[in-house]
Design a protein around this nucleic acid. Structure first.
Ligand SMILES: O=c1ccn([C@H]2C[C@H](O)[C@@H](COP(=O)(O)OP(=O)(O)OP(=O)(O)O)O2)c(=O)[nH]1
Ligand SMILES: [Mg+2]
Length: 371
DNA sequence: CTCCAGCCTAC
DNA sequence: GTAGGC
DNA sequence: GGAG
């Protein structure tokens, strides 16, 4: 029995528990295996570190550095679960998803309160403009950087450009709308309108709101519908319904723009809508799926995106493949993990069965918040 | 040193 | 083929 | 940038 031994921080039970997550079974490195509720204690002792690392990751994403943003996201995920403050390199380096580079940064944040790398980055005068442009729907890194390079500084500058894409123009015209979160009650109200019209067209159709709403969020970035119909076996069986639905909702003045529409093989309609009497345009998505693909589609459209990527990666490690249509087995891949064969469908209809088949404990939607 | 999800539409 | 998006 |  050890007595009177001074406890080094890294030997506290909480840190040991976190270390254990990374060792042993490799499965625990998949965030889909334990999920998350997105709720971090407001008194999380690492909140300042998390905030700075978040900004660092966002910065790398904005300048287009590949993978670093995801790496920061994972490191942040680790810190969010801790109840103990990590303030030195030695403690940080022991944690899963935190290596030497981020451990150093954690120490710098805790001793100086900030990160010089980040301060320098944010001091760049074009950075604010970059952020402005990147929040335009239909504008990504490539376009935003080209416009900056060309000296553009404001949304008005951009509106004068002759070669704006259709959606980029809409994105600029409705810049504030699309960057305004939608309160949960409004999502419910928008949902009721769609459900009513859908039922009026065909009583065998069901419309479910997925996305962040299904995960229980109090505000959403957009509204995501999964639309299905009894006794259907291909999304092709629902395309005529989708056309009718869109036509009716457009006629009613509810749908105000189409952003992307499905090709003959497609199943997703993306556009904008507005509540009567509310000038704000909201982005809206319809995913039409046959009964046989409902579970996989629900899983996909419930997300979050990090959860999806994690569970799909897990599937691929088991020689399977998960997409919005189903779970497939015996998928052949190259040494570079590139898909060579489709594999054979094992399950598409039932969300729970997909979890089971992958050995992932069932997570209700509100426990699939991994960012 | 290699891998990091998987798919769709617009241009 | 590339960009942007879910 | 981290894991394997
Ligand atoms: O890169 C992505 C983006 C989204 N999705 C899935 C998960 C996500 O939950 C769903 C709907 O996408 P959306 O962009 O609407 O995200 P959200 O989770 O609904 O959040 P928000 O409140 O911002 O709409 O599509 C992915 O699988 N990969
Ligand atoms: Mg959404």
């Amino acid at each position: 029995m050890k007595i009177a031994i001074v406890h080094h921080p890294e030997t506290t039970p909480k840190i040991l528990a976190a270390q254990r997550m990374s060792e042993k079974d490799k499965l625990s490195s998949f965030t889909c295996m334990y999920g998350g509720t997105g709720k971090m204690h407001k008194d999380n002792p690492n909140r300042h570190t998390i905030d700075i690392l978040q900004q660092m990751g966002e910065y790398y994403a904005q300048i287009g550095v590949p993978w670093k943003p995801q790496a920061y996201q994972k490191a942040i995920g680790t810190l969010k679960k801790l109840e103990v403050k990590i303030d030195c390199f030695e403690d940080a380096i022991r944690l899963p998803n935190i290596g030497t580079r981020i451990a150093k940064k954690i120490e710098e944040i805790c001793t100086t309160g900030h990160l010089r790398t980040l301060d320098n980055a944010l001091a760049d005068p074009t950075h604010k403009t970059l952020q402005l442009f990147l929040r335009i729907y239909g504008v990504g890194l490539s376009q935003a950087h080209k416009w900056i390079q060309a000296g553009h500084k404001s949304l008005d500058d951009l509106l004068a450009l002759p070669d704006l894409h259709k959606n980029q123009r809409i994105g600029i015209d409705h810049y504030d709308d699309f960057n305004t979160r939608i309160p949960r009650d409004e999502v419910t109200a928008l949902g009721d309108i769609v459900k009513k019209v859908a039922a009026d067209i065909n009583l065998n159709v069901e419309a479910i709101i997925g996305g962040s709403y299904r995960r229980g969020a109090d505000t959403s970035g957009d509204i995501d519908f999964i639309i299905t119909k009894r006794n259907t076996r291909s999304s092709w069986d629902l395309l005529s319904f989708l056309e009718t639905l869109v036509a009716r909702l457009t006629c009613d003045g509810f749908l105000v723009a189409a952003l992307t529409v499905p090709a003959s093989s497609g199943s997703k309609w993306h556009g904008a809508c507005a509540l009567p009497g509310n000038p704000l345009w909201r982005r809206i998505d319809f995913l039409v799926v046959p009964e046989t693909e409902f579970g996989a589609a629900l899983l996909y459209f419930t997300g979050d995106d990090i959860f999806n990527r994690s569970i799909r990666l897990l599937a691929s490690k088991k020689n399977m493949r998960l997409n919005q249509k189903g779970l497939y087995k015996d998928v052949l891949r190259t040494f570079g993990r590139e898909k060579l064969s489709e594999g054979t469908l094992v399950e598409g209809g039932d969300e729970r069965k997909i979890f089971d088949l992958l050995g992932v404990p069932w997570r209700p939607p509100h426990e699939r918040i991994c960012r």
